[in-house]
Design a protein around this nucleic acid. Sequence first.
DNA 1: GCGCCAATAATCGTGCTCAC
DNA 2: GTGAGCACGATTATTGGCGC
Length: 378
Amino acid sequence: MARKSSIKNLKKARKAKNDEFYTQYIDIQKEIEKYLDYDSNTFRNKVIYCNCDDPFESNFFRYFVLNFNRLGLKQLITTSYKPSPVANIQLQLFGDDKTLPKSKGRPKVTANKFIINEVHDIDGDGEFDLKDVAKQLKANKHNEWAPLEKNGDFRSPECVELLKKSDIVITNPPFSLFREYVKQLFDYDKKFLIIGNINCLTYREIFQKVKKNKAWLGNGMGRWISGFIVPKSYELYGSEARIDKNGDRIVATNNCLWLTNLDHGRRHQPLPLMTMAENLKYSKHKEIKDKKEYPKYDNYDAIEVPFTDAIPSDYKGVMGVPITFLDKYNPEQFEIIDINPHFFTIVEKGLPKPPQLKIAGRNDPYARILIKKSRKII
DNA sequence: GCGCCAATAATCGTGCTCAC
DNA sequence: GTGAGCACGATTATTGGCGC
């Protein structure tokens, strides 16, 4: 079904390049806890780097500093990016940015870095909170709060130096620079847990990493991520934008995912499926139920499966499935062959260009992941 | 000038639950 | 039985840029 307003919003988004979406604390907490459930030492003795997170505003900083001891972190590094809306979202505990003396070639406003080595209750109120962090930072005891030379761009030499020192990068990067951002993570061989748009799976570079099992989806996708806090300047439109009880402006995008190379339990769980005969008889999707067979592509030896839960468990050939299948992908259960090259072409050395999939004489308009059952029996 | 590639930070359709 | 509300899951299709 076409959406009449979609192109208008698409053009608007393309022009605006709104990268200032702030992740909610609850969504970070939910995701991190899943890795701890799988392996409680996932973050122990690790240097976590949040390199797209203004410490004044970021819930990533807030989460990791408040859980520093429980997770057993070795160090937490956070760098901000300037210019950005200073402290207009949530945290104003630390005062203003620290700045460097004016000099030729130096930006008017520089970004800041926070390096946390130790956190504990220093004000004696019986609990550890951000007030303790603020006091420790201001006193420069054990921790460091300093201005950066430049604007804090993740590609800048000083941020790259911090990246080299880190073990795991965890953040919500700017979507408009997503591919460049992921490339940097692989260039420096870093573990990561980042938020991306579902469509990033169709980007050539990202899909290749997923196909080669060098990156995969985290625990939550779509509505698992409950929404992002947006600046006051962001126009709230659409049915899933709201102002919450704290006055924060929330946009529930429902099109985001966690992309990671940290292992977690969910990706080892097999997707429960019915056989082809059972699907044709009992599927909840009318496109499948009571049909004689699954449609086949005109120009590719594979069947079209428009819903992940309608993947037949007993079909041994290639199947074209929605990209959201990757949220349920278990590499022991299925093998990724390729992707329908509607948006781009993936051509590995020595391999022919895959065809644009056609059904009943028409191009399949949707991106499809081509998969087949793994040879491994699970 | 033509054709192909890549970008796009929600919305829509469906089905379930629950109140009446 | 019915309709409202909600949860869940799949994915619009035009346009700018670039190569030829």
